[in-house]
Computed example of a mutant assay.
Amino acid sequence: MTRRLCSLPRQPAPSFGPGLTAERLGALLAGRRMWVNGTVLHYCFLDADSDASVIPVPGTGELRRVPWAGGKEQRDVVRECFAQWEALGVGIVFTEVGDRGEAELRIGFQAGGGSWSAVGREALAVGRAERTMNLGWDVTAQGERGTVLHEIGHALGLVHEHQNPSAGLHWDDEAVYAELAGPPNHWSRETTDTNVLRALDAGESRGAVWDPCSVMALPFGPGLVLEPERYRGGLRPAGTPSDLDREFVLRWYPPAGGCGPKPLVPFRSAPLALGPGEQADFRVEPPETRDYTVGTFGDADTVLVVFEEREGEPRFLAGHDDGGTPDNAAVRVRLVRGRRYVVRVRLYSTWGSGQTAVMCW
């Protein structure tokens, strides 16, 4: 029996400037979807009367309206799955909110719309009235909890593990097309290419070791994989985060240290002694209310994000990713005296002298 599978929409290939070294390009590919550590990801469920898709009724020429709302049991499974990821000890916090304007992750349950999610920071490019995740079948059914865990993995920035080039999977392409063109998936060849047959760039995947037990690997029945021989009988991941999944997410999102962010005093630069993928956090307590520039210096690709603390929780204020460009990450923001702000800088890679710094002025 063929299971329903995650159907990520196809995204345009990333565009970087010419002349990048392989090391720099690999670092950009690896980190471009990942959140800065310490981010609070707010999620909401789209259940207003206006939240719906209008789709054609096959063979009739008519249209029907399919709502995005899910029942309490469906929403409870999603809440439990967010908690399961957070319980791994990651430095990302998931918080449910009722206002979609405050939510980076917006979840719908359109029946027949497939299950998919924006991958990591791709969610920020999705319109506030649109979903960043859809769960298109009953996730309360036996064995379907893994679907929710898988889609939340995408929301954290993880990609399909069966597409890891280190897996060395040799598919029977036509058998895969035929299998997934039928029920219950009804995929086009393009969707099958995007989600199964296309091997990811080495920089996009988690590295030289692939994990067939990963929650990010999809299940497949026999007869679809030709080589390696041990997978001819199919791929059957457990449907829950594996040990290597936990190791990977903790590398990107380690738990917060005890010292907290360092002070960043206006007009004083703070050196960044970071390696690829590492992050530095700073706190800013502005001496006066005005517009400030917060930016990095040096030959480096970085992501810089400014958060404002509201009731003890960091809320996104502004951010800039200078990855692959000759510019440095910088934002212009209004900071208010008496409030506290957190600046987080994650490094992709350096070149030239490798000396980097951050300043608020």
Rank of each mutant, 00 (worst) to 15 (best):
Q355P: 00
P222H: 04
A52V: 11
L105T: 11
S7G: 07
T240I: 12
D51W: 04
G101N: 15
D321Q: 08
G114H: 09
A181D: 14
P255R: 05
G127Y: 11
E96M: 08
V336H: 13
A30V: 00
E174A: 10
N134C: 14
C81A: 15
Q11I: 06
D321F: 07
L124G: 00
H186N: 13
F307C: 08
D299H: 14
W252V: 05
R344P: 01
P255M: 11
L224E: 08
F267C: 09
P266H: 03
V331S: 02
V209Y: 13
R310P: 00
P266E: 02
Y292M: 02
G61Y: 05
N195C: 13
R145S: 06
T60G: 07
R79W: 02
A69Q: 05
F248R: 11
R4N: 04
G354Y: 09
C44L: 05
S269D: 06
H170R: 12
P222M: 09
Q84P: 00
H170T: 14
A318C: 08
A123E: 05
R4Q: 13
P14M: 07
R346N: 02
A300M: 14
S214A: 15
L197R: 15
F248T: 15
V66P: 00
D138P: 01
L124M: 10
P18N: 03
V225S: 01
F220P: 00
D291K: 12
G113C: 12
L5E: 14
V159I: 12
P67T: 13
H150Y: 08
A129L: 09
D193N: 14
V90S: 12
F16T: 04
Q279P: 01
R340W: 05
R198G: 00
A129C: 06
H170G: 00
L304C: 07
R65Y: 03
L28R: 01
V358L: 10
P18E: 04
T147N: 11
L244M: 14
F316L: 15
A141D: 13
F307K: 02
G70N: 04
S115V: 01
N134Q: 10
L264M: 09
A199R: 15
I152E: 06
R33L: 15
L5A: 13
Y231D: 01
A330R: 15
T140I: 02
S115Q: 05
L180M: 14
G71N: 11
L46C: 06
L200T: 06
G257P: 04
Y253H: 02
G338D: 12
F307M: 04
